[in-house]
């Protein structure tokens, strides 16, 4: 069947079998291997991507079900001005070791910060509770998301003057 999925701002049209899973469409057809694939049983959360802006486990969504919708993967986090504050936060606060859980964690963090600019530690822990990390003990992931919240807020208060300069 024909699907049309917007991934990181680009429309992709493809012929797929109805049983094709979104995680495989992303990794194998589009070669966007930043989306990881672990347990295959909707438990580990390493396959999390944003579907219309909200975290979902892409091993438990059919590509067919995502047709007509927009998907954001870790490859779509970086903006024209450089790394997303969430990516910087993971770097600054040492939010990863092996990196296997990291793409899903960062996308969940992005979705959380889009809705809540100043999440508490408890809210961050709740948001990432569907995703396993075998390395960090979660503490540095929480710190990384807090780092992003704080720096994002700072960037936003500074940005009006920046855009004025850009307009000149």
């Amino acid at each position: 069947m024909q699907v049309s999925i917007n991934v990181n701002g680009t429309d992709y049209n493809a012929e797929v079998e109805p049983r094709h899973l979104l995680v495989r469409f992303l990794r194998e057809d589009l070669r966007l291997t930043g989306t990881h694939w672990g347990c295959d049983t909707s438990n580990c959360g390493t396959c999390v991507v944003l579907l219309d802006g909200e975290p979902v486990k892409s091993c438990t969504v059919l590509a067919a079900m995502a047709s007509g919708h927009s998907v954001r993967t870790v490859e779509g986090l970086e903006g024209p001005d450089g790394l997303d504050p969430v990516q910087q936060g993971f770097m600054e606060e040492h939010g990863l070791q092996c990196g296997f859980c990291t793409p899903g964690m960062m996308l969940t963090a992005r979705a959380l910060l889009d809705r809540n600019h100043d999440p508490s530690e408890e809210q961050i822990r709740e948001a990432i509770s569907g995703q396993l990390c075998r390395c960090t003990g979660y503490l540095n992931i929480v710190r990384a998301v807090r780092w992003a919240a704080e720096h994002q807020a700072r960037a936003q208060t500074e940005s009006p003057s920046q855009s004025e300069t850009a307009g000149v």
Binding site: L51, V56, K57, T60, V61, T108, G130, Q131
Partner: peptide, 9 residues
């Protein structure tokens, strides 16, 4: 019940 990404679906 489950976790946030599962509850989204």
């Amino acid at each position: 019940i489950a976790d946030p990404p599962v509850r989204n679906r």
